[in-house]
Amino acid sequence: MERPVVAGVDGSAESLAAVEWAAREAELRDLPLRLVHAWNWNPHPPSDVPAGVTAAGAAQRVRARRMLDEGESRVRAVCPRVPLTADALEGPASAALLGAAKEAGILVLGSRGLATVTGIVVGSVAQNVAAASPVPVVLVSTGVLDESPASSRGATVVLGLDLADPCDEVLDFAFAAARLRGARLRVLSAWRSPALYTLGPGELALAEGPRRGEEWRGFQDAVLRPWRDKFPGVEVVGTVVEGRPATSLLGAAGEAGLVVVGRHAHEGHVLGRHNGPVTHALMHHARCPVAVVPHP
């Protein structure tokens, strides 16, 4: 049995946007959807807990159920036929979500969310989980709420392809996502000219920008060739630019339905690891969903 799409719910606008996106993704993939809310026991529950509930733990369970009910309502409004379950998980949010990821095919989170106790807007949970999840994590911002339910279909998928480390897991996810949506796949790779002092004997010719750019374009074509054959129905547009990859990807994200990037997976998936600069920039500034795909 295929693993479900799992979406985290914390009551924030971003998490509700993530729930709606996850529902549509589950429908596209013909998979069930599981909503999860993680909560910590707190002796001083939030003020919006009903006055008649006196036990702090019970009060927080009531609040968790309320958030899950709101998430379920969003799902039923956009994808009423998607098989749906909802669970409250006790424990620190990042650890609980990583536990849920072990049974997921894809984990979907709001790019920013609400702190459990104070309500301060933070992004630490999404960052921690994206950096340590064993499965792809899709980060969704509130901008997705402004889109129509069918907006994911036909919208361009952008793949940030690191030509120094082209990984099958990332390529497969991006091509499959484009095929699923009937979308064009734009593959964007960035390169930077080496400083003269880093070049070895006989390498000075590589410092010439036009020639080096052509070499990178040829390398990208070679990497993509077997994937074009594997996914013949996907229209692929390859682009190689000189400069910082984060800048180029953020520009491309403005007209994309999904951006896909990779990150190195680490044995044990320990919390506290950090995302790379490209993923970090996309998490904070991209308006479209960002998929972070782990690879060896």
Rank of each mutant, 00 (worst) to 15 (best):
A56Q: 04
A252C: 07
H295Y: 10
L97N: 00
P194R: 10
V278R: 00
A64F: 00
L171C: 06
A131H: 02
A58H: 12
R228L: 09
T54Y: 14
G218D: 02
A26F: 02
V75K: 11
A164D: 12
A252P: 02
V9C: 03
D221G: 08
V75E: 08
V117H: 14
P32V: 00
M67E: 10
G257D: 05
W21E: 11
G8A: 15
G262C: 09
V135D: 07
V9Q: 00
S193V: 14
G200T: 09
G99W: 02
A178D: 06
K102C: 08
Y197D: 15
A195E: 13
P166N: 12
V236W: 09
R273G: 13
D48L: 00
G251P: 05
A286G: 03
G52K: 04
W21R: 06
G272Q: 01
A56F: 06
R81N: 11
A256H: 04
A59I: 00
V290N: 05
V108N: 02
N275M: 14
R24H: 15
V129W: 00
L163N: 06
V236E: 08
E267K: 13
G99N: 10
S47M: 14
L171W: 02
L97K: 01
L206N: 14
L171P: 05
A86Y: 08
V82M: 06
G113I: 03
V170E: 00
Q127H: 12
E103W: 09
V234S: 01
T54Q: 13
H269R: 14
R34L: 05
S151C: 02
A101M: 04
F231A: 11
R184P: 07
V140S: 04
